[in-house]
Amino acid sequence: MLTSESYAELVNKVYSRSRQEGNRSYPVACFEIFMLAQAQQRASRKEADLFRQLGEIFDWNMSRRQRNAYVKKLLAGSTLILTDLSKTILWTSRNFLTMTGYSHKEAIGQTPRMLQGPDTDPATLLRVRESLRRANPVKADLLNYRKGGESYLCRLQIDPLYDNNGELTHFLAVENEVK
């Protein structure tokens, strides 16, 4: 069995030969796709590990089953957004950029209001705010706006997170674009 290093050497030899001949060989393209998929899987695992670390740092009172359900949603492509009690964004998953067009740096320190616009339903916003004020979980479909101004329908579920002392510490939103 070839190691990834020896496979890379073999592919580089084939790639060099194919470049000299003026064409691109099939194995090189396959290898590039394979390496990209591997990098994406590593990034997803790193992000899941970071989410688990956040749970440990903030001492969330969350069962292993709950934590694994969030990680599963994260790995399945859902966008996760962690806010403090004042609804300031502290962390977003990588999928936030894909869904909204905003980078992590642009989102951190902002509130989710940055995603709302002229056609965002005020009644839905009020229902979400009231549920969070009472520290109740809430599900809603909300019209949000990407960085470029394009609207999209977002299905969100926001859960209050408590520490092991029973104190409310954060809110975690799991969001998916409805197509």
Rank of each mutant, 00 (worst) to 15 (best):
S16A: 12
L75I: 14
Q66D: 15
E47R: 05
D119N: 10
N61G: 15
V14G: 04
G117M: 07
D121E: 12
L161N: 04
Q40Y: 04
D163G: 13
A8H: 11
R129V: 08
R65S: 15
A29F: 02
Q66V: 00
D121G: 05
T3C: 04
G77L: 05
Q53V: 01
Q110Y: 01
N144P: 13
N68L: 12
I108V: 09
R146P: 04
A173L: 07
M99A: 11
A29D: 13
A48Y: 00
L54H: 06
V14A: 07
K73N: 15
Y26V: 10
D59Q: 10
T83N: 07
Q116L: 00
F34H: 08
Q20S: 05
F31N: 14
K46H: 11
N144K: 03
V174N: 05
N164I: 04
Q110G: 01
N95R: 15
T92E: 09
A173H: 06
V28K: 13
L156S: 05
M114W: 08
A140L: 03
T83D: 04
R42A: 10
N68E: 15
S18V: 10
S4H: 09
E167M: 07
K179Y: 13
K72L: 10
D59I: 03
A140H: 02
K87S: 11
Y152A: 14
F34W: 10
L168C: 02
L85F: 04
S44L: 09
G101N: 03
R134T: 09
C154M: 09
R42P: 01
Q66A: 11
Y152H: 11
N165Y: 05
Q38W: 01
S93Y: 11
A107Y: 05
M62W: 14
A8N: 12
G148M: 06
D121T: 02
A69F: 11
Q66L: 07
R52V: 09
K147H: 14
L97A: 13
N61D: 15
L161T: 03
E47M: 06
N165W: 02
I57Y: 15
Y70G: 07
A69W: 13
L50C: 08
A48H: 01
E56R: 14
L75G: 08
T120V: 10
N176R: 15
T79S: 14
K72Q: 13
E167N: 11
